[in-house]
Design a protein around this nucleic acid. Structure first.
Lengths: 189, 189
DNA sequence: TATCTAAATAGACATGCGTCGCATTAGATG
DNA sequence: CATCTAATGCGACGCATGTCTATTTAGATA
């Protein structure tokens, strides 16, 4: 996702988008670009550096004149990435996150027993997702059944039940609860 | 280009990209999203408003709970736009060669006053063309009248008069000068 | 009706970043 | 070697914007 973000940030500026537009036609020098977009040369240099960092342009020096050209390959490669919703979905699960989740689970769980409810939202979310997995997807759970499942892991059934609903992991309608389909395969402790 | 820019700006933020990632899987409520990305609900609301403004998400209310879903159509439509270099080239449309001329004029002119005579041939040509426009087409100008016009813009009348003739913008015959008809409508400062 | 909760709004704060002017580097020119 | 010019490096300034807390709105519930 790093690259995709850098790519989007690089393009999400009016001046830079114009520069890319000009370079889409043909290679151009810095001064020429500055004149075309109505900015000073240092400013254009600055923008070109950002575009280069995102691997969107590359430079060819000819004397003191620097000619820039558009790297259409990366433009298309990353454009395609933004297109596909499947790949976008992967942005939700950044790398390294799993390890952190495991650590949180290890901290607050003693086997199947929840030793403490985390105060920080982010950690609490991890615990709630773990707890939600103790429910099957599909069947209706009347409130006493919900409490029963929770009680196997922690005594405060009221709080956890409310938090599960608040986190969108359980839903409630006319007194019965059911588990919402999980987003992606979750990591076990 | 308006839409493309809005689209890119909307996506060029880590939090929003994560939100879009989560919504790529399934619709979710604000609270659920807040928990997943580790932000407060108002913040998520704020981001969703931006995504909605870019027509990237839409909302469905169920009681007080607001469920957001991703609008994959616009995602793909605008993603495709960013892909094609031909369309990108259109972003440059309003700019062009004229802008370079304007820049040269802006650099060497202070209002009607010529601050410096460009050394490079190409730029000097632009300035000389501008200066030639200060003469009417048709009437004869005796040398003192030529100097008088030039002096309104720069003190070095001898050099500029010679350059104007050299550039083929003024002609001289038996001591009187006249302006040559311009090739094409020129751009003003 | 009174209360509770999910979300949105308003306003404040801090950080990020686009732009500029000035200074510096490095080819080119004489 | 001195000079000129294209480009980049360097701070500085000011606006844009991501995040928060506090407050308000509106549907649900008792």
């Amino acid at each position: 996702m790093e690259k995709a973000l850098a790519f989007l940030k690089a393009l999400a500026d009016e001046s830079r988008l114009k520069l890319v537009g000009l370079l889409a036609e043909r290679e151009r020098s810095v001064g020429e670009l500055a004149g075309a977009v109505g900015l000073r040369e240092p400013t254009v240099s600055h923008h070109l550096a950002k575009l280069a960092a995102a691997e969107l342009v590359e430079m060819r020096a000819e004397g003191t004149t620097h000619y820039y050209r558009l790297r259409t390959e990366t433009l298309q490669r990353l454009g395609r990435e933004v297109l596909s919703t499947e790949r976008i979905a992967a942005f939700a699960a950044p790398a390294g996150e799993d390890a952190w989740r495991r650590k949180v689970l290890h901290t607050f769980l003693d086997g199947e027993r929840l030793t403490k409810i985390p105060d920080t939202r982010k950690k609490r979310q991890v615990i709630l997702e773990w707890l939600a997995e103790r429910f099957e997807v599909g069947p209706d759970y009347p409130e006493p059944r919900v409490n029963e499942v929770i009680r196997r892991h922690h005594p405060d059934t009221a709080t956890l039940r409310r938090e599960l609903v608040g986190a969108g992991l359980l839903r409630r309608d006319s007194g019965v609860y059911w588990r919402v389909a999980p987003a992606a395969p979750a990591v076990e402790a």
